[in-house]
Design a protein around this nucleic acid. Structure first.
Length: 356
DNA sequence: TAGTCGTGGAG
DNA sequence: TCTCCAAGACT
């Protein structure tokens, strides 16, 4: 193919057609980094308000480095993949401590930072520093698989190497930032997973898949997902002062360090209010009275897991949560300050709107 | 390597 | 309603 024509057609299209997005207003390495982490596996429209709020609250790398974990989780609340913000926090603190607050511009250094994988390293280095390093995400693999007729299975981690080599070979050294962004923008707007808009594509003359009419069969992507189902019982428990009992999740695993209403996994068909009462007594030494009917049933779908949560209402008769570090009684007003996963936000909304 | 880790949108 | 996600990284 005519590499130079491909590069200029692609980049010129990007200059004319790129979307007006908040993180494209400047190339500050910290801001580029924040946007790239937020955009991991997350749609642009979802990220925009989070990005604006984030930089309003943490306008500089130092401001974010000095934040406490509760506040960084709260600002990420609802965005998902919460380890991203904890890793970013760890990495930013390291940049402030070891690099004087300047985001490293060397691949070997930036790649050592927590949460910075090959894609994010390439994106930050090219967009913020103009380095000719590929940034291979799902868009780029899809676009290149069609342009170059690459049939490697993009679901296999090993395939990334093939696409990195391809992207490096096509790199537009006059403007690596625009080149990388243009490949992704093309994937987002034109070269979409289903029904790509080839007739609007600025590089269709260079596209092998289009010339053969096989664009709908690329990229090759296998992988089946196994969705588990879990049934949970949760309780919104009030003490005599009207405070609500909440629990901090473990620091590792699903929804790490987020807050939730006390809950337990149950065997289907055996979920009854007695189980909750017994759970509170044996697990937390709390003597409680639980309403006999759930006030809501919440269904929540994760990538590889589904929760069905029956939520009950209850009152504390006696008990002491001292010794249970993860538990806390908070007022309804205070509760709003804690970061909850969406599934438990649903429970809280249903609780406040419940018929009594 | 394959599994883990969220959420809301689109077809 | 159901499937498949969307600018990935970590273990």
């Amino acid at each position: 193919m005519d590499k130079e024509a491909f590069q200029t057609d692609l980049v010129q299209w990007f200059q004319e057609e790129q979307r007006d997005l908040p993180w494209r207003k400047n190339n500050d390495p910290y801001k580029v980094w924040v946007s790239e982490v937020m955009l991991q596996q997350t749609r642009v429209d979802t990220v925009i308000p989070y990005y604006n709020r984030f930089l309003e609250k943490f306008p500089t790398i130092e401001a974010f480095a000095n934040a406490d974990e509760e506040s960084i989780l709260k600002i990420w609340e609802g965005l998902g993949y919460y380890s991203r913000v904890r890793n970013l926090h760890t990495a930013v603190k390291e940049v402030v401590a070891d690099y004087g607050g300047k985001v490293p511009d060397k691949k070997e250094e930036i790649s050592k930072l927590k949460g910075v994988g090959p894609y994010t390293a390439g994106a930050v280095l090219s967009i913020a520093y103009g380095k000719p390093i590929p940034a291979v995400d799902g868009n780029v693999m899809r676009v290149l698989s069609r342009i170059l007729l690459i049939t490697d299975d993009i679901a296999r981690p090993a395939s990334r190497k093939t696409f990195e080599i391809a992207a490096k070979g096509l790199m537009y050294h006059e403007n690596p930032s625009y080149f990388n962004q243009a490949l992704m923008e093309l994937g987002a707007l034109i070269c979409t997973p289903t029904s790509p808009a080839c007739l609007l594509c600025p590089v269709r003359e260079h596209c092998q898949a289009f010339s053969k009419g096989v664009q709908d069969q690329l990229p090759v992507k296998t992988r089946k997902k196994n969705t588990k189902h879990e049934d949970l019982l949760a309780v919104v428990l009030k003490n005599k002062e009207g405070k609500i009992l909440i629990n901090k999740r473990p620091e590792k695993g699903l929804l790490a360090n987020l807050w939730e209403f006390p809950n337990l996994k149950v065997v289907p068909l055996l979920d009854k209010w007695e189980i909750l009462q017994d759970f509170l007594a044996t697990e937390y030494s709390i003597d409680a009275v639980i309403e006999h009917a759930a006030f809501t049933e919440v269904q929540h779908v994760f990538t590889h897991l589904t929760w069905k949560i029956d939520a009950y209402e209850g009152r504390v008769m006696s008990g002491n949560i001292k010794g249970h570090e993860s538990l806390r009684f908070v007022t309804e007003e205070e509760l709003e300050e804690f970061a909850f996963p969406v599934s438990h936000q649903k429970i809280w909304r249903a609780y406040k709107e419940r018929a009594r």
